[in-house]
Nucleic acid binder design. Structure first.
Length: 430
RNA sequence: GUGGGCGUAGCUCAGUUGGUUAGAGCGCCAGGUUGUGGCCCUGGAGGUCGGGGGUUCAAGUCCCCUCGCUCACCCCA
């Protein structure tokens, strides 16, 4: 089983991981920045938790009967003999941090975190991906569920995405779900032989997952299955109704789906999932979440309600690409210094420009003027600042526009920074 | 964990029934212009043909194994 990595494969990114190079990395940052601005506008603060935790955090939080914990988690024993796991999911870590530090309630936190799961990679699914998410603890009010869903929806819409949809469901709570599961088991036991093999085996451990099965045999067998929506207890029914009312009032379209059973054990009441219609792959879920009123207690805290979501950044980027929704041009340089007089000017000018808040780069290695001009052009800079022996003698710099048909002109060395700053302000006003 | 497809230059690919020193476009470097980018022209660098074994006078090409990538199932963002 244990295979050693040979020299060749040891020198590439591990299976299912990808380097994100410039300028793609800029798009990633742009998405993250939009998310930060949005959730901070709603009172959420950044929480940074470690990429690894004691294994128990995930085993207890997410539940043992789950592939993410059962067979996909990167687990290891560290040099002190501690059982650790790389974070496969965002919520458990954040809730653990809450339990450990007891910040005042309500506590509204957001995160951007790499998640690691030993899955078989495929289109739009990787062993390391990133999620942005929020978790709000200490509030049972359904209006907070509405706020959370609104934030996810608004994130997508302000990115410019159009082709996505929201499914909404309720998982009930400790008062009504056991009764429903008993009802469900009665129904499914009579049709056990019609289910797919996986779910015949899973009836004992997690019967509700059958509802989410895509196989035709399970679909057919659960055609007339009792719906949890029809068996919610009174408080759950009122909560669900208030959530629907709230998102409807905010103009968010949702499809009620009694088969929406999300993967983690901790969900209670509200669950939701956003899927993109633009992603040309089997994996098209953008993100999802819900309420988890029992999770804090499971992880050792006092009973505390919670609700949140996680959104896959890579999936959002794929959707943006498919819908041409995100600008792909990174910010360009303001100036590129071409120095054919020994390099002192390039050294000093770039330092001065950067200190003034301008973006500036230069060539090295005393390359030919032609080579330096090519680099200047390729850099995307607005102007080339040319310094040769003649300019040194005159104390000037040639400012040559690269993006427009305009003539170059000599500017006194000490006025270069001010000239470029003025030009940039002029552009911003235009 | 299961199944399908694919591995030739940094990238996208060609390579004819096995037959000389393995090619193109783009990109990169240099020159054409001894002070000027883009367009054009010329030249150059860059390849253990994923790796190993086998068949053969001869393997990028055929066979086996292996590694990797990729798509799908399971599951998940």
């Amino acid at each position: 089983m244990a295979q050693s990595t040979d020299d060749q494969q040891a020198l590439r990114a591990p299976t299912g991981t990808h380097d994100i190079l410039w300028p793609d990395s800029w798009r990633f940052e742009a998405v993250a920045d939009r998310f930060r601005a949005l959730v901070e506008s709603a009172g959420y603060g950044l929480v940074q938790s470690p990429v690894f935790e004691y294994t128990a955090v995930f085993r207890k939080g997410i539940g043992e009967d789950n592939d993410v914990v059962g067979r996909e988690m990167y687990e290891f024993v560290d040099r002190d003999g501690k059982m650790l796991a790389l974070r496969p999911e965002g919520t458990a870590s954040v809730v653990r941090a809450y339990v450990q530090h007891r910040p005042p309630l309500p506590w509204k936190a957001w995160y951007l975190a790499p998640l690691l799961r030993h899955e078989r990679p495929q289109a739009a699914r990787y062993r390391q991906h990133h999620q942005v998410g929020i978790e709000a603890l200490g509030v049972a009010d359904a209006d907070l569920d509405v706020e959370v869903i609104w934030l996810a929806n608004t994130f997508f819409s302000t990115l410019g995405l159009r082709d996505y949809s929201l499914r909404l469901g309720s998982m009930g709570d400790a008062a009504c779900r056991p009764d429903y599961i008993a009802l469900l088991l009665t129904y499914l036991d009579a049709r056990r032989d019609e289910l797919c093999p996986d779910h015949q085996a899973r009836l004992a451990t997690n019967p509700m997952r059958v509802l989410d099965c895509k196989r035709p045999e399970c679909r057919a067998a659960t055609e007339g299955v009792p719906r949890l929506f029809d068996h919610l207890c009174k408080p759950c029914r009122a909560h669900f109704a208030r959530v629907q009312e709230g998102i409807g009032a905010l103009g968010i379209a949702a499809t009620l789906d009694h088969r929406l059973v999300r993967g983690f054990d901790y969900y209670t009441r509200t669950t939701f999932e956003f899927a993109s219609g633009a992603i040309d792959a089997a994996q098209n879920a953008l993100g999802g979440g819900g309420r988890y009123d029992g999770l804090v207690e499971i992880l050792g805290g006092d009973p505390t309600p919670g609700v949140g979501f996680g959104i896959g950044v890579e999936r959002v980027l794929i959707a943006c690409e498919a819908e041409s929704a995100l600008p792909t041009a990174p910010p360009a340089l303001d100036a590129f210094v071409v120095d054919v007089a020994g390099g002192d000017a390039a050294r000093d000018l770039t330092a001065a420009l950067r200190l003034a808040g301008l973006r500036a780069d230069r060539a090295f290695d005393a390359r030919s003027m032609k080579a330096q001009m090519k680099l200047a052009d390729r850099s995307g800079a607005a102007v080339a600042l040319i310094v040769g022996p003649k300019e040194i003698a005159q104390g000037t710099v040639l400012v040559r526009p690269l993006r427009a048909e305009a003539t170059q002109r000599a500017v006194a060395r000490e006025n270069v920074v001010a000239t470029l700053l003025a030009a940039r302000v002029g552009e911003a006003d235009a």
